[in-house]
Design a protein around this nucleic acid. Structure first.
Lengths: 340, 340
DNA sequence: TTGAAAGCGCTACCAC
DNA sequence: GTGGTAGCGCTTTCAA
């Protein structure tokens, strides 16, 4: 083997002082050049020397030192905790991240699985993020918001069903989804409507408001809403289908398309005709809904573009004392197919 | 409105000096107490005073200042970029995060969507992570690894099919999946076997090795492998099914269960009998495979537990100069059902 | 048992 | 145009 470039690996990271020394200038000049500081004029020769020195040493600025000096960061913290939320949500997150980067923020997801609310808030605060966008998987208390703001967070934004004192809110009005689904079923003349409630942890956050919307749509129509807890597995689905007739249901809003597929298969295997005896409506408009027979009616969900949220973050960071805003983030539209 | 607690929000964050002042001690003492420094004895009275002062002020230490002083961090960086990877992968990531936190690392996902390899490596290096676990969505070049190591990363671990010079590798031997699927089909007497190659960006990372494995399994058996590009949509699937007979295939390994569902539906709609005329095998053992008719044969994938990877990270951080390890991370097992 | 002070890497103010 | 330098918040050595 010839001499590998490993030698450099164990040397310590070059600092701006190293760059300055190699370029034969002061650290100040290095900083000016590498940050393109506008308030100061540097000769082109010096600029080039500094750039070359930085390149040669493989200089990478030290974010912690920079933000310590600056007194603030450009970090937007997105706490996460493991909710398996599907393609819609992840597309939304991707877009949010991308849009925030365009606005020159550093986007960081902080895994907070299993942390208590205030413990989590403190851990986030240690990083001194300029903004926190909490998707609601980790509950944020008013105290938590306070801790974050004291630690320099200009914007604390919750993304979810509930408001938190002191934080801006982006409301995912999930209830609209349940409302659309049930309104459709009522129009179809259905009167006893089941609503699937997933038993998986972390989903009540979505399912509760959907149930609530279902109730609202049924109110005053004479239709009845029956919550149906269900685990995402074959046996419980079969069991539920087994007592379907004694439940006396003529329709079901099945939380989303995946639960709908599970339930519809179980119903069919139990000899229940869909949609003749029971209508089924899903949500999310996944491709699989169109592959089922009968094709699955569903509620299509248009999440607001992440860019919009990114701009809200930026606006609040610039004007932290503005009135907390409240935005609705979801538009829902029913797509009737064959299952209802 | 009565006076809200907003007053405190715009004050600056309390520092250890503030705590020291309130407790009537020095900053050193504050540090000793709050970090439970073992090498120094502090009286219980002082301890309590410090703790109370910190509590009262809502003191949160400044991670950047701490790590600047310490010369290193405990941050493990997980670069991410939007690959729609499914429940298996996300469960794996959850476990990894959780296990790393137990080992006292701070786990941070860094959204790197759309970055170039070396630009990304530099951005990560600015944060001076002690370890980087790159899931391979962002290609890591040898130069990138070098930059990260120079900036203090003790462990650079790639998670994927390819090795990168200088980095430890956790090989997701995806090829085993294709191998299992095709070996099964050959045993069933199939001779012309299609392999679905998703056209969605970011998946060739998984699909290429699966194809390679398929080829290996076919080699010497007289069976023939035919790659079949496919977008995850109904029309292309229907089109592919439309020319199925002219392709002369008697089996297909369909990348995963979701593509299998899409293709199987298209084949059935085109009047192709499954498994009579064509066998179909998926992968991932998703629930939906059991809901299909015929039930879908699949390759079950056992990902190594995240804890194992967390321990590797920790081991490499403690002994950075150890020989780069190479681990196989996937065990695959064929589950025959009705579709093959 | 506690305190004083140096210094991590960086930027921005001021002087030359 | 460029350089000297203070100081961000923290930990840790050394003295008291």
């Amino acid at each position: 083997m010839s001499q590998s470039p490993k030698q450099s690996a164990d040397r310590t990271a070059p600092t701006s002082a190293d760059v300055a020394r190699l370029a034969g200038v002061s650290r100040a000049t290095v900083s000016y050049v590498l940050n393109n500081t506008a308030t100061v004029r540097i000769s082109d020769g010096t600029r080039r020397k500094v750039r070359e020195a930085a390149e040669e040493l493989g200089y990478v600025p030290h974010a912690a030192a920079r933000s310590l000096r600056a007194g603030h960061t450009r970090m937007v913290l997105l706490p996460t905790a493991s909710v398996p939320v599907g393609p819609l949500y992840s597309a939304f997150f991707d877009e949010l991240q991308w849009a925030l980067r365009r606005l020159d923020y550093t986007v960081v997801q902080y895994g907070s699985l299993g942390m208590e609310a205030d413990e989590a808030a403190r851990a986030w605060a240690e990083l001194r993020p300029v903004a926190v966008v909490s998707s609601g998987e980790i509950a944020l208390t008013p105290q938590g918001v306070e801790v974050l703001k004291r630690s320099g967070a200009k914007a604390v934004i919750t993304l979810g069903a509930h408001r938190v004192e002191g934080a801006h809110a982006l409301v995912l009005n999930q209830s609209e989804i349940g409302r659309q689904a049930v309104a459709h079923l009522v129009r179809r003349g259905r009167r006893r409507i089941g609503v699937i409630m997933p038993e998986e942890r972390g989903l009540d956050f979505f399912s509760e408001p959907r149930l609530e919307g279902a109730r609202q749509a049924a109110a005053g129509t004479g239709a009845e809403i029956v919550p149906l807890p269900l685990r995402y597995e074959e046996e419980p689905a079969a069991a539920l289908a087994g007592r379907w007739r004694e439940l006396g249901l003529d329709a079901v809003f099945s939380y989303n398309d995946e639960y709908a597929m599970l339930l519809m298969r179980a119903l069919q295997d139990a000899g229940i005709d869909v949609p003749g005896e029971t209508s089924v409506v899903g949500a999310d408009d996944l491709l699989l809904g169109r592959l089922l027979r009968p094709r699955l009616s569903t509620v299509q969900i248009d999440m607001v573009i992440g860019r919009q949220l990114a701009e809200l973050v930026d606006r609040v960071v610039r004007d932290p004392d503005g009135t907390p805003e409240r935005h609705d983030l979801i538009a829902a539209r029913l797509i009737p197919r064959e299952s209802s």
